[in-house]
């Protein structure tokens, strides 16, 4: 078990799923019902996206709530141009923020989750509960002392501070997700490794880590998104000159005299990177990594 080589996620995701095709009339109906439901839900989810999309191409005279569903009469990319001009300078900085924040906090969460679920020490449950409880702290209440704390530590305002803060506040949620994910890993696997004489790190590296794909997908999506879309920490710990895209987006969309087409276009520009992460990472759900590796 512990010596098996684990297929790289990419290949296993691309590999065709072995699935027995048994087509009975009942399962045929079931499949149709499922499909209809899926499409209905899809339309529901896309309704706001449709408004976002069409409005971004409208001239300002056509942007209002009662015209939300209409297609633009005069298509224009003016909104996109305005949005790009005001968002592009901060785009790169936001990558520098969100990628390390997502990767590091996921890695820490994975190790923590492993220890708390499969390599427990006395008091592990209490510690876990304390971690979780920390997630509920309302950040609005603590941003002022938090700023004091980061200045005192000597972190420069801007991206480095934000990475640091997002990693810290991402640890509880990543730990939670991995701990509960690893809870579904059969005990026998870990015990077998221990019988083989593997220590903690080898058990983690050879047994747990290869099974962690879907878990990482979930935490990276969460952390990347929350770092990417965070506004509260961003306004307190950075500024327009060194901060992430939400600050620029808020300047565009958060005012009273909103340029609707530009703010909708801006919303889409700002969402594209996150969306790409979902599409790329989403494939790794498909592989059914865990089931596959156990079967082999």
């Amino acid at each position: 078990m512990s010596t098996q080589t684990i297929p790289a996620p990419a290949t296993s995701a691309a590999a065709p799923r072995p699935r027995k095709k048994k087509s009975s009339p009942r399962s045929q109906t079931a499949r149709t019902v499922r499909f209809v439901l899926l499409v209905l839900f899809l339309l529901m989810v896309l309704l706001p996206a449709y408004v976002l999309f069409v409005t971004s191409f409208k001239p300002s005279a056509e942007t209002s709530a009662d015209r939300a569903w209409l297609l633009p009469q005069n298509w224009t990319t003016e909104g996109w141009k305005t949005a790009w001009d005001s968002l592009s300078p901060s785009l790169w900085r936001t990558f520098q923020l969100a990628i390390p924040a997502a990767l590091i906090s996921s890695a820490i969460g994975s190790i923590n989750g492993f220890v708390l679920s499969r390599w427990r020490f006395p008091g592990a449950d209490v510690l876990f509960t304390l971690f979780l409880f920390g997630m509920f702290i309302p950040y609005q209440a603590v941003v002022i002392p938090l700023r004091q704390l980061t200045v005192w530590i000597g972190l420069p305002n801007g991206i480095p501070t934000l990475i640091f803060v997002h990693i810290i506040y991402g640890i509880p949620i990543c730990t939670l997700i991995f701990r509960n994910y690893y809870a579904s890993v059969p005990h026998e696997l870990v015990e077998a490794a221990q019988v083989d004489g593997a220590g903690m790190f080898r058990t983690y590296a050879s047994i747990i880590l290869p099974l962690s794909g879907p878990g990482f997908v979930v935490t990276i999506i969460w952390q990347f998104t929350s770092a990417w879309n965070d506004y509260l920490f961003a306004i307190f710990l950075s500024n327009t000159r060194n901060g992430p895209i939400t600050i620029a987006l808020n300047a565009l969309a958060g005012g009273q005299l909103t340029n609707y087409s530009a703010s909708m276009a801006g919303a889409m520009i700002a969402s594209i990177p996150t969306l790409i992460v979902y599409i790329v990472l989403g494939r790794y759900f498909v592989g059914g990594l865990m089931a596959g590796s156990v079967k082999s």
Partner: peptide, 16 residues
């Protein structure tokens, strides 16, 4: 390293 860079910046905000 980061904090060294900003050592001169007492406030830490103005960055540039």
């Amino acid at each position: 390293d980061d904090s060294d860079n900003s050592a001169g910046d007492t406030g830490g905000n103005s960055g540039s």
